[in-house]
Nucleic acid binder design. Structure first.
Lengths: 230, 230
DNA sequence: AACAGGAGTTAGTCAAGACTAATTTTCTTT
DNA sequence: AAAGAAAATTAGTCTTGACTAACTCCTGTT
């Protein structure tokens, strides 16, 4: 009897968890994040980071490959975006409506971001006129969609599953090829494994409507062009 | 070496401690507070309350006479007033500046009150023009000064008339109901009669600005929650 | 190919704060 | 004055999230 690898929704994401997710999001734009970098970023010891990594892995917010760093799952990425959104919205509000200095807002937002209800978040957003960026010019994520175009298959750890959101439209040849494989927006896709030495990616594809699902191996160029919904 | 009986300043007062102090302050206007009342108020079990009482005693925020309840020390009372002040200031701000409804502000303030920096507290106070009372009519403590609450409708004899000074802010349902009746701070109210056998109370209400006045019958719970200016 | 040193993990501890179960005090009622 | 009920406490457990100490894995040198 082992844990479900496709872990259920975490009942609640504690403030500490939110801080870790946010830090991983910030550090992890390009690949896995080493636990010691995480520890350093958060000002905790290395074992604390490992420990939290294990727990976040268990609730399915990230994947933790022992000795090789952590990577957010789609769910984890969404949760991180939620926190970043609240943080930047608060910074904007504190600067514009409350009149705090732009050097003061970060610390205040850091304390409040974990305790903002959805109702209050929405109200502040609307009072500010749905701003696109915070006072430092950083974009404020909205609908989980805007900030990032969504990760490519290359960036997703083995085992993760998601829905294809878009496919680069540059090369008609590529597009036709991918369409023949059923890799089109809306298709469900599972990353089975990354083959070693910068190798290709094995995936299982479930085109919308079709059932059995089919396995393919995609070269890195192709895998880097397919993005999942974030 | 043992603990100093005249305990030193507690390094930090945790959010949980703040909630206990606030509840004791609210319940303890007249003498010691029984731990089971405290537990009930906070929605925890009796042992949890006893346990926290012991810890707060150790850091000198209250005195705990085993089997005979707790009482705030001066330091504890001051800490409680700080929390109450932040709570009521936040309620006022959320209602006046953010535009939340008077039945919504309590819950939001409850979440944020533990994470308000002194800087932000002072800024909000000044933005509001140093208000004396919150939207429910409760006084906002300042410099540790506090005020006696007026009598409730239950305590007023038939025939007496007065102005509503404050309404308990605990239950949004109650608040909406009372507001619909025009029972808000500033309304004129006359107690017509107390119905027999612990019965409800008949009152006439004159909301501020409105004229004719209207008669209602209030259950004892509701009547016990509406206070008149003293 | 061995190995040093750094990164990562395991094991064990601690404090806050909640819980249940069992026990003790105090109060009320006959 | 004794019995029961109600209130309070003790004892022991659990979870979260941090820590130190000790061990293991990985990698870049020689």
């Amino acid at each position: 009897m082992s844990e479900d690898p496709v872990a259920a929704a975490p009942a609640t994401i504690t403030p500490a968890m939110q801080d870790y997710l946010k830090a991983i999001f910030r550090l992890g734009e390009t690949g896995p994040v080493a636990t010691h970098r995480l520890a350093e970023e958060l000002g905790v010891t290395a074992p604390s980071a490992t420990n939290m990594a294990k727990r976040l892995h268990e609730v399915g917010l990230l994947t933790h490959e022992p000795y090789h760093g952590v990577q957010l799952t789609l769910k984890g990425r969404q949760a991180a975006l939620d926190v970043v959104r609240r943080h930047r919205l608060l910074e904007t509000y504190l600067a514009e409506a409350v009149g705090l200095g732009w050097d003061e807002v970060h610390d205040e937002a850091e304390r409040l971001e974990h305790h903002l209800s959805e109702r209050l978040e929405a109200r502040i957003d609307s009072l500010l006129g749905f701003p696109a960026t915070d006072p430092h010019g950083d974009p404020i994520p909205r609908d989980g969609a805007n900030l990032a175009p969504g990760p490519t298959l290359l960036q997703m750890p083995a085992g993760s599953e998601g829905t294809v959101s878009r496919v680069s439209d540059r090369d008609p040849e590529q597009l036709r090829y991918l369409r023949d494989l059923g890799i089109i927006p809306g298709a469900r896709i599972t990353v089975i494994e990354h083959l070693p030495f910068e190798g290709p990616v094995r995936v299982r594809v479930l085109p919308p409507g079709e059932e059995p699902g089919q396995e393919y191996v995609l070269g890195r160029v192709l895998a880097g062009v397919v993005r999942l919904a974030s």
